[in-house]
Amino acid sequence: MIVLKQKPLEWILDAVKNYDSVLIVGCNGCSGIYQVGGEKQAEAMKLLLEMASEIKLKKNLEVETCTVLRQCDRDLVASSLRPLIRRMKGHKAILSMACGVGVQTISEIFPEIPVIPGCDTLFIGMRTKEFGEFYEFCRACGDCILFETGGICPVTRCAKGLLNGPCGGMREGKCEVDPERDCAWVLIYERLKAQGRLDLFIKFRPPRDHRITIGPRVWRGE
């Protein structure tokens, strides 16, 4: 899941101040599942913007909402937004409640309309059961070794991204960067040990081929 957080209302208000009408586009994908920018949040944002613009900007901002199933899907975005955009009046802007991909999908399809990101995209991760906090779990490194590391990603969850950890800074199972955080390589060791696969822990992993992650990455399918 892509983990995001809403930008501060102040920031959004400043971004919309020069427009007459704003279309808030929610996303029921990652953003909706984690209740950051789904249908309900888009509706709430509409009320907030209407009130705030009246009080703070002293103007009547025309706000509509529309929530798509996944804002990263070109076809869904095009068909859902086109009739609504046609109806908008004056200076138009779109406020996207999705990740950076959603913002750019809308921008690609409607290049003439400014798109305001309503959220900051943080990382690919999940909400952990124990803490109800979001943790980064995948760096999209393009060369997955999770089978060899007991389903725990060292590229993401080790602060140094080591392929042959842990480093000498590990202290009683915790990371030298943040003593609250588990050392990913200790987790890997414990998991592999429980699976009877410690031979994979000793295995040397040569340095990565970083050409895989040189941006911007393109995938043309096979």
Binding site: A159, K160, N164, P206
Partner: peptide, 13 residues
């Protein structure tokens, strides 16, 4: 910016 292109094992290698 931390680098860690190699680690101590790949440095030995």
């Amino acid at each position: 910016k931390p680098v860690f292109d190699l680690d101590s094992a790949s440095l030995v290698y």
